[in-house]
Design a protein around this nucleic acid. Sequence first.
DNA 1: CCCAGTTCATGCAATTATGTATATACTAAC
DNA 2: GTTAGTATATACATAATTGCATGAACTGGG
Lengths: 306, 306
Amino acid sequence: MNWATITFDWNQARAFLVTAEEGSLTAAARALGQTQPTLGRQVAALESALGVTLFERVGKSLHLTGSGLELLDHVRAMGQAAGRVSLTASGQSQQIEGHVSITASDILSAYLLPPIVARLRQSHPGIVVEIAASNAIRDLTRREADIAIRHLRPDQPDLIARHVGQGSARLYASTAYLDRHGRPSGPADLARMALIGFDRDGVLLNHLTAAGLPIGEANFRSCSSNGIVAWHLLLQGLGIAVMPCDLADATPGVEPVLPDMAPFDYPIWLVTHRELHTSRRIRLTFDHLARSLRAGAAMAAAQVGG
Amino acid sequence: MNWATITFDWNQARAFLVTAEEGSLTAAARALGQTQPTLGRQVAALESALGVTLFERVGKSLHLTGSGLELLDHVRAMGQAAGRVSLTASGQSQQIEGHVSITASDILSAYLLPPIVARLRQSHPGIVVEIAASNAIRDLTRREADIAIRHLRPDQPDLIARHVGQGSARLYASTAYLDRHGRPSGPADLARMALIGFDRDGVLLNHLTAAGLPIGEANFRSCSSNGIVAWHLLLQGLGIAVMPCDLADATPGVEPVLPDMAPFDYPIWLVTHRELHTSRRIRLTFDHLARSLRAGAAMAAAQVGG
DNA sequence: CCCAGTTCATGCAATTATGTATATACTAAC
DNA sequence: GTTAGTATATACATAATTGCATGAACTGGG
C-alpha cells in the first residue's frame, strides 16, 4: 500500500464532509462541537493540500464546486466507514463508564424513563444517559441512538429487539371538561365532543374509527405532535385524548371516558443494534430498561385490571 | 446524520490503520513521515477515545486484540476511501505545480527518462517528477505511481493506455568477451556461451528458445533482476544479454551478437489512471512523455534500420 | 433605504500536538 | 551470557492548532 497518498489531514476531510452536508461552516461547527473559524481554516487547508477548490465563496454562502462534488462521494464513504468504526468500538467497549443514548416517545421519556434512569445511575454512576425524546423514529442503523423504545416490532435483521410487555391506553379527559360537556354514556355520544389529536395525518382517527367510534376530522379541535403538549391540552380541559393508562390513572383531575370500553393495547419493544449488544455498558442499560419496563407494564396492567 | 458519532480523531484512526498494517509504530512512522512517539501517542489516544484496547503491549511488539481486528476492517475502509479522495483530488487538480510520479523499468529510468524529464522541467519548472525505477509492475489502481511505462497493453478498464511506439532489443556482448570467446556465426554457437539473465523464473529463457536458440538453464552463468546491474555485468564481459538496441548501439565497446538475426520488438505503452488523466499537470506530463518516447522510438527504429 | 440576522474572515492568546534526545525492554545470534 | 539490533515509553522545547473576540459582507424584510 502506498501510504503517502493518504497523508492529507483526515480531520480536514471530516470538516469538508460536514460542511458540505450541513451547508455552512457555522452549522458544521455546531454539529461537530467546534468553532466556525476552525472549520473554515480546516476546509481551506484541505483545498490547499489537495490543490482543488472545494467551495466557491459567493459572499455569504459556500457553493460546492464540481470538483468538490466529485470528492464528496469519497469523503462520504470515509464518513460512513468512520461511523462503523464508532459503532463497532462502542460494541467492543467493555467499560461500564461511558455514554448511552436512549430514544423514546416524549411521554415515555418524560413520565416513565426518569425514575428508571435514576435507579440505573444510582447503581452505575459511570453511565451517562442521554434521552432523545422524539416521536419521530430514530434510525438505529445510522446510530441516531444506542437503544430505542418502540411500539412496533422492528424487522431489520441487524437490530436486536426484546418484547418487554404491553402498554394500555384509553380515552381520557379532565374532570372539568366532563363536568362542562357531560360524560358520554356510549360511543355514540363522542360524535359531538372535542378530541385532541397527535398529528394531521389521521393515523389516530383511523385507529379510533376502526374501534367503532363515530368520529371524523371535525372532532379534532386541537392537536400537537408533541405528546406532552397534548397531555397538557387535556389537563387544560380542551378535550378528550388517548393517553397511557398508567400516566392518566395516576393523575388527579383526570378520568377515563367510556371506562367500560376495552383499552387499546400496544406492545413495548426494546431495540438496539446487534453490534452494540456486545457492549457491556449498553447491554447493562438494555437489561435494566427491560427489567424496569416489564415491571412497570405489569404494574400498569394490574392497575387497569383492578 | 448523527455527526457526534464520528467526532473521534480521524488522524488517530489513520495512525491505527498504518500501525496495524505495518506491524509496528516505528514502521508506521516511517511510512507516514512522522515519528514513533507521535504514532504511539495517537494510537493510545484513540484507544482511550473509543474505550477499546487495540493492541496488547507484550514488551517489544504490539499485537492486535480481537477488538482491534474488528475495528481494523472499518478503518481500512476509511483508508480506501481516503485513497480515492486523494486519487480524485489529483485528477481534479488543475494546477501545473505539483508532484508527478512515473514508474518504469530501471534501464528505461536510468538511460531514457532523465533527458526527457530534464526537458519537461525546463518548460514546466513547477512540476516535481519522481521516478520509481522498478521492474516490478506497480499497481496504478492503488496509486503506486501516477504514470507507468509498460511493455504490455494493460487490460484494466480504469486505466488509460497509449501505444507510443515500438522498442527493439537484441543480444549484445562486450567486444572483450567476444574477442575472448569468439563471435558466434549462427544460433547453434550460442549453446556453449554465457548468457546474463534477468531473473530465475525462466521468462527470458522461454522467449529465447521460442526464437529458436539452442540454450538451456545452464547457459545462464549470472543474472540480476536489476537491469542496470545486468547491463554492467555485460560491460564487464561476463556474457551475452538481451538489451535495448538504442542503449547498446550507442555504447562503445559493446557489439551485437548474431547481428543478422531479427531483433525482438516490444511495444511501449504509456499508462495512467482514468481519474488522473483529467489533471492538467499529469496530462501534461503524460503527453510530454508520449511525444518524447515516440520520437525516441522512431529514432531508435531508424538506427536499427540503418 | 436601513436594520436585524447570518455568514465568513482575521488577530491574538492559550492550549495542544509534534519532534528530538534519551531511557528502557525485548529478541536473536554468537 | 553477552552484545548488537530493534521496538516502545518519557521529558522537554518548539511548532501548530484551536477558540474567543471582532470585523466585514451579504440576505431578506419593513
